[in-house]
Structure formats: structure tokens, C-alpha cells
């Protein structure tokens, strides 16, 4: 990796840590330990199902909220505060800045997810008293959640390259919700004909397919995740994120900093 991108990414990570973004882990830990104790008291035979479902959904939601709310400010905050001036007056290309900020935030989310994943496994151990082979699929679900974060960060960055932080948050969140229903949208497109069918198909394939990345329910039931899905989802998330970041770079390259 280009060293300047690495320096910018590290500074972004350091800023998130010092701005106490990782404090969300405390809320997460409280939620999960409370849930584990409660589930252990009231559930019979479905403790694992509840803990995996609740834990992974919380990991996803906490991360998406962080991705959106930090992602929308990654570039716009630097323009508003003019911290960008002294960075771009150095031999730093604008695309390096955008990519560095993206890696910084995704790095923060990966670290955050790592600690949350530890919490999920500890809660699992608490309710089930031992790990089983099928618990390995939880790792795959966590990997998909990280892919989801990559896409959400990239979209937040893309919208913030031309829009206000508030509108960027609205657009990104709306796309996250629509994308989580992408499979239903594709089903709807298949049964619709004519112009409406065309539009539904176009929308279904343009919006990010977050539903394909959601295997929480599957792994909670101990079902395996096909290797082909892991490959497809990895390629899809990387391509989608690259396209969104490229869009952000193209817009930012031409932007006048006021």
C-alpha cells in the first residue's frame, strides 16, 4: 500500500479511537451480557439460537451506525474544519486522501468487530458451556458483516463527496434499508412486466444487495454457508465498494474547497 494512504488511514483510526468511538463496545458488552444472563434463565434449548441472533444483529447495527455517522463526515468534516488544506498542500493526491480515510474507518470497524465478536463467543460459551463445530459459521457471518461495513463506508463516503452530512446520512441509511430488502426487490422485479418490470429490475440490481450478506439466521440455526456464496459475496462487496469509492474520488478530484 502507498505509504501516504497508510499514514492517512492510521491517523483516521487514531482519531476515531481518541474520539471515543470504541466506547460503543461498552454498550455492546452490557447488552450482550445482560441478554446472555436473561436467556440462560428463561430459554430452554434455544439459548444458542437467541445469543447468535441477538449478538450478530447487534454487531451489524452498531457497526452500520458507526460506518454511516463517521463515514459521512470523513471528507466533509475535513473540508468544513479546513484540516484538509494543510494535508493537500503536501505531496498528497486527492485520491490517496479519500482511499486513506476509507481504510482508516474500515480498520476502525474491523477492530470494533473483533472485540464484539469476542463478546459474542464469550456469551455463547456462557449459555452453551462449550463450543461446537457449527459455531465456526458464526465467523463467516461476522466476515459478511465486515463486508457489509465496507460497502456502507464506501457509500457514505460517496454521498458525502457531493452532499451535506445530513443528506448523506439519509441517503446511506435509505440504501442500507433498501439493500437489506434487495432479495425481495429482485423477486418483485421477476414477477413484474413492462416498464415497471424494467425499472424494478434496474433498481434491484443497482442497490447494494445487503440481504445476500445477511446469514445471521442461517448460522444461528447451525446451517452451513456455501463456499460459493462466500466467494460471490467477497467479490461483490469488493467491486461495489471499489465503484462507490471511485465515484467519490472522481467527484472529489474536481471539487473546489471553500
Amino acid at each position: 500500500m502507498n505509504s501516504r494512504i497508510g499514514y492517512i488511514a492510521f491517523n483516521t483510526f487514531r482519531e476515531a479511537v481518541r474520539d471515543r468511538v470504541l466506547y460503543n463496545l461498552i454498550a455492546f458488552a452490557l447488552l450482550l451480557s445482560g441478554a446472555a444472563i436473561l436467556v440462560g434463565e428463561i430459554s430452554i434449548d434455544i439459548e444458542r439460537l437467541v445469543v447468535v441472533n441477538l449478538g450478530l444483529t447487534a454487531v451489524s447495527l452498531f457497526g452500520v451506525v458507526i460506518a454511516i455517522f463517521i463515514g459521512i463526515g470523513l471528507v466533509s468534516k475535513e473540508i468544513d474544519k479546513r484540516t484538509l488544506y494543510t494535508v493537500l498542500s503536501r505531496p498528497v493526491r486527492r485520491w490517496e486522501f479519500v482511499v486513506g480515510k476509507f481504510f482508516g474507518l474500515t480498520g476502525t470497524l474491523v477492530v470494533n468487530t473483533f472485540f464484539m465478536a469476542l463478546g459474542v463467543f464469550l456469551a455463547l460459551l456462557y449459555v452453551a458451556h462449550k463450543f461446537e463445530k457449527m459455531d465456526g459459521w458464526v465467523l463467516v457471518a461476522l466476515y459478511f458483516i465486515v463486508l457489509q461495513f465496507l460497502m456502507v463506508c464506501a457509500l457514505a463516503l460517496f454521498f458525502s463527496s457531493f452532499s451535506t452530512p445530513l443528506m448523506s446520512a439519509v441517503f446511506t441509511f435509505a440504501l442500507f434499508v433498501i439493500g437489506s430488502l434487495a432479495e425481495d426487490l429482485r423477486g418483485f422485479a421477476r414477477i413484474t412486466h413492462g416498464l415497471a418490470g424494467w425499472i424494478a429490475t434496474a433498481v434491484a440490481y443497482v442497490v447494494p444487495n445487503f440481504s445476500a450478506l445477511n446469514v445471521i439466521s442461517q448460522v444461528a440455526h447451525g446451517d452451513a454457508v456455501p463456499g460459493r456464496l462466500i466467494l460471490y459475496n467477497s467479490v461483490y462487496a469488493l467491486l461495489y465498494s471499489t465503484m462507490a469509492i471511485s465515484g467519490a474520488v472522481l467527484i472529489f478530484q474536481r471539487r473546489n474547497l471553500k
Partner: peptide, 9 residues
């Protein structure tokens, strides 16, 4: 820059 603002963290 005029009235510079830096990364305050």
C-alpha cells in the same frame, strides 16, 4: 492557511 485548524486529537 488563514486561521488554521488542525487535527485536535
Amino acid at each position: 492557511p488563514e486561521q488554521p485548524y488542525f487535527y485536535d486529537h
